[in-house]
């Protein structure tokens, strides 16, 4: 089914309001993209190798390890994939780890880590040093996470199986936390997802998101950084949650500067609800040739 036909009337209206008429031109699945795993191979070496095989690379302006690729083969069924030279990853999902700015030797909490695209990217940014606590609540999803960590050669990660909403009970504090919450996934522009979204799902998800946010907040050191992200287009899962973080938890929002990234600022209001001025510093990644994403950098 074409994406446009899958949209319900209320979705059509809200996306028109948020993104303007242009939104309906975006409505196609984004091209495939990868992140080169520099823990195993350099970008230059990888590109050279795969160009010989006929792959075409288009650089992502704001991240030198990410590329759009065109290939005549199924890229995830290649030797290079199986030996961990790259990760098939949507371009927008490469943003939250960049915003988190993990440094070598830091200790990072990734509260909803599976299947591990962002965890392995964080490991890559940390050059496999320091420590990542990669948590998820579902054992099935942890299997995929563990497989990806191994395939990409990640040495610095501890995988935990815990309810993220109760993680704060460990008493552990972190300077940097990634909170990539479970969400409706509407930013994927997948017709099936659009059809599943309704008021009930939204309420259910926003309750989980707030609960996870509160837990992450309690695990955050004073002056620590918490990056909140979703692959959702819905203000209820994005700006409303950040508004809650600012007004109820006292977190402040920091500007996100990624040169060359096409994005818009967080909404000022939604459905008659006016958000804190701070919310505007969050970014909405425009779903053109990539997933729609929402990213916010919060400081305690």
């Amino acid at each position: 089914m074409k994406v446009e036909f899958a949209l319900k009337e209320f979705q059509r209206e809200r996306y028109l309001k948020i993104y303007g008429k242009e939104f309906f031109e975006f409505l196609k699945l984004p091209p495939q993209s990868i992140r080169v795993n520099t823990l195993k191979i350099s970008v230059e070496e990888f590109k050279k190798k795969m160009e010989r095989r006929g792959w075409k690379f288009k650089a992502i302006e704001w991240y030198e390890e990410g590329f759009y690729v065109e290939a005549r083969e199924n890229i995830s069924k290649t030797i290079e994939h199986q030996i961990g030279y790259f990760f098939v990853q949507n371009v927008s999902s490469m943003i939250p780890p960049l915003v988190l700015e993990p440094k070598k030797d830091e200790i990072i909490l990734d509260l909803c880590a599976a299947p591990g695209a962002k965890t392995t990217q964080i490991a890559q940014l940390m050059e496999n040093s320091g420590l990542i606590i990669a948590n998820d609540v579902k054992i099935k999803r942890l299997r995929a996470l563990r497989g990806n960590l191994q395939r990409l050669g990640v040495i610095n990660t501890v995988v935990t199986l815990m309810d993220g909403g109760k993680f704060w009970k460990t008493g552990l504090k972190f300077k940097k936390i990634l909170l990539d919450v479970p969400c409706s996934g509407s930013g994927n522009l997948n017709p099936r997802i659009f059809q599943q979204i309704g008021k009930y799902t939204m309420n259910y998800l926003t309750r989980i998101q707030k609960r996870l946010l509160i837990s992450a907040f309690k695990c955050l050191e004073e002056d620590g950084i918490l990056v909140y992200s979703t692959c959702s287009l819905e203000p209820e899962e994005n700006e409303e949650i950040i508004d809650f973080a600012v007004k109820k938890l006292g977190l402040s929002v920091e500007e996100i500067k990624i040169k060359g990234l096409e994005c818009m600022e967080g909404l000022k209001s939604w459905n008659g609800k006016v958000f804190s001025e701070e919310v505007r510093k969050a970014i909405r990644v425009i779903p053109r040739d990539k997933e729609g994403f929402f990213v916010c950098k919060l400081r305690k």
Binding site: G130, R146, Q150, N156, T157, T160, L172
Partner: peptide, 23 residues
């Protein structure tokens, strides 16, 4: 298995660890 030495800098007692390190 191999793991970074940072592992012992955190209190592991309250974590429900599923796995750690590289095989």
């Amino acid at each position: 298995w191999l793991l970074t030495k940072k592992f012992f800098e955190i209190d592991l007692s309250k974590l429900k660890i599923n796995s750690f390190g590289l095989y």
